[in-house]
Amino acid sequence: MSTMSPSRRRVLLYAPLAVAGAAGLGFWAMLRGLQDGSFNPRGVPSALIGRAPPDFALPEVEGANLPAFAAGDLRGTGRPVLVNFWASWCVPCIIEHPQLMALHREGVPVLGVNYKDRPADARSFLQRHGNPFARLGADQPGRVAIEWGVYGVPESYVIGRDGLVKWRWAGPITAEMMPELRRLLA
């Protein structure tokens, strides 16, 4: 160790090139991923995946005539269900609504959580755009949403047959996502 041979010194001089090259490859992969959607610096996975949803019980949305639900209603349904957090003031929720209606028509149980909303606004939203929800709970203070780790509305979760969270999507469900979603909900 007392002296460095010339070749060892040479290796050291190549270090900047090697580091820059590796970083460049990494950035290249990131840019490729950004373009095809596989790398998304904002797509944060839910901490709930593979776990049971948290314990909660929601009141019903006043005057909506839909049964409310609690954590127990997600278990033992015999089939996967979709839990959707939404609000009438949320613009992307309007974009996503036709997809929820389609799932509802196909017989998928869609459970809605009405997030920080006024009951009257929620009711008129459902009257105007149609009601896709088999059950609907009101989360006026937004506390249940925090229990789930919700970022904002709209946000959707697929609960599997075993009662565990299989999938989460933060943002509106788009038409392109439907085939994958149908497969998850089958």
Binding site: P6, P16, L17, G21, G24, L34
Partner: peptide
Amino acid sequence: GVFILVLLGIYIAGAFALFAFRAP
């Protein structure tokens, strides 16, 4: 981003390669 990355590759990798060859 791809364009800038290619530029960076040329300038930075080029300079570091030159460095590795010529610094001794």
